[in-house]
Amino acid sequence: MISFSVSSTLARVLMILGATLGILLIAWMALHLSVAQLNWLEPARATTPYFACWRALLYTLIFAGWAAALRMQPTPADQQRLKRLGLIGFSSIILVELSRV
């Protein structure tokens, strides 16, 4: 019989492999879209300034929440986690905005 730690590790590995396979499948399908299938994006580009305002508001609220969490005097371990989470969040926001170019 497989021990609990080995089975949970195996389950994690299988979930990661499944998620990776799903991401690769979506990327492969996106690469094979024709120009005619992408025409539905044209009307959405007219609302870009509207969505830019909402994104700016969302990013401001995320930053304010993160700063408030840091001000609550967390333990050093929690403070490191918050800083790491802030770095990951900031990096993901930058990646999302750069991918919109």
Rank of each mutant, 00 (worst) to 15 (best):
L82V: 03
S5A: 15
M15T: 06
V35W: 01
L95R: 09
A56S: 07
A30P: 04
F90A: 15
T20D: 00
V96W: 12
A77T: 15
R81G: 01
L21F: 09
L38M: 09
L21E: 04
L70G: 00
T60M: 14
W54E: 00
E97Q: 08
A11L: 11
L38Y: 03
W28I: 10
D78N: 10
A11P: 06
A67I: 09
L82C: 01
I88K: 06
W28C: 09
V6N: 11
N39P: 04
V101F: 10
S5E: 15
S92T: 14
A36W: 14
L17G: 03
S3H: 11
R71K: 13
F51M: 03
W40V: 06
A36P: 07
T75W: 11
T9W: 14
A44S: 12
F63T: 12
Q73H: 12
L95Q: 06
R45L: 06
N39C: 01
L10G: 02
L24I: 01
P74D: 10
A11T: 04
P49R: 04
S8C: 09
Q80K: 14
T48A: 10
S3V: 10
I16V: 12
L25H: 00
A64C: 05
M1H: 11
T9R: 13
A77I: 13
L85D: 10
A30H: 08
R55G: 01
L85S: 08
L24T: 05
L25Q: 00
I23L: 15
S5H: 14
R45F: 01
T75L: 11
I62S: 02
L33H: 05
L10F: 03
R12Y: 00
W40P: 03
F90C: 10
L98H: 03
W28Y: 07
P74H: 12
L98T: 04
V96L: 15
Q37C: 05
L57A: 07
I23R: 02
